[in-house]
């Protein structure tokens, strides 16, 4: 659990390792399994998620505290957050395409995928549920996305090896990938209790 009493490095450690978003919290699994077949691709996806998740959290935080709460329309939370995220992803995509074509070529195809990446909406909701302040929300979002990038890169490394391993017919492809993720999750579970987090 994260709250405002925690120091910033505790938030970072918790989000990065102890409560790793993919392996412990089960968010963003689609893209985790979808694009983790090569290390470079995973790195690009990770960067795109860091970028979008941070901006989306900041925008959601502002909308919640300056629009939904003052107007007493908290029940529009899910609807307004997902619309903001979808719009934001479009804007970011258009902006990068114009200003940084090289970056666009690297991230381009992953950006639209991020709209349905449940990590983005999930974290936007969590920072509200945890009642985090603005700065802590930003720190938390960056660390969560960092945790995503870390696990997806490590996992891509494992997958490149698995491709060459002799595996029973029925387990080839998706099944062995899930089981590998399970073992990796077991390893990350070892971080539980670290500093009492």
């Amino acid at each position: 659990m994260i709250d405002n009493q925690m120091t910033w490095y505790m938030i970072v450690l918790s989000a990065l390792l102890v409560n790793n978003i993919v392996l412990i919290r089960f968010l963003a699994l689609c893209s985790f399994f979808g694009v983790s077949n090569r290390i470079e691709v995973s790195l690009s996806m990770g960067m795109a998620v860091v970028f979008v998740l941070t901006i989306a959290s900041a925008a959601s935080w502002i909308i919640w505290y300056f629009l939904l709460v003052p107007l007493n329309i908290e029940y529009l939370r899910t609807a307004s957050f997902i619309l903001v995220i979808a719009t934001l992803v479009q804007l970011v995509e258009m902006y990068i395409k114009k200003t940084a074509p090289a970056l666009y070529n690297a991230l381009g195809i992953y950006l639209p995928l991020i709209t349905t990446n449940c990590a983005v909406l999930g974290i936007a909701i969590l920072i509200i549920d945890y009642r985090l302040g603005f700065l802590n929300s930003i720190i938390y979002s960056i660390s969560v996305a960092g945790g995503y990038t870390l696990s997806i890169i490590l996992f891509a490394g494992l997958r490149e090896r698995i491709e060459m391993a002799p595996i029973p017919e029925a387990l080839k492809g998706a099944p062995i990938i899930f089981i590998t993720a399970g073992i990796m999750s077991l390893a990350f579970l070892g971080f539980a209790h670290l500093f009492g987090l």
Binding site: I24, E169, L171, P175, I177, I179, A181, S185
Partner: peptide, 25 residues
């Protein structure tokens, strides 16, 4: 215990998918 913890979810779904594939094959 590990089966109701996060790793269990990945491992069980892996075997479920493998089971479905094995049956359809």
């Amino acid at each position: 215990l590990v089966f109701i913890m996060p790793p269990g979810a990945f491992i069980v779904i892996g075997f479920m998918i493998a089971g479905v594939r094995w049956m359809t094959k």
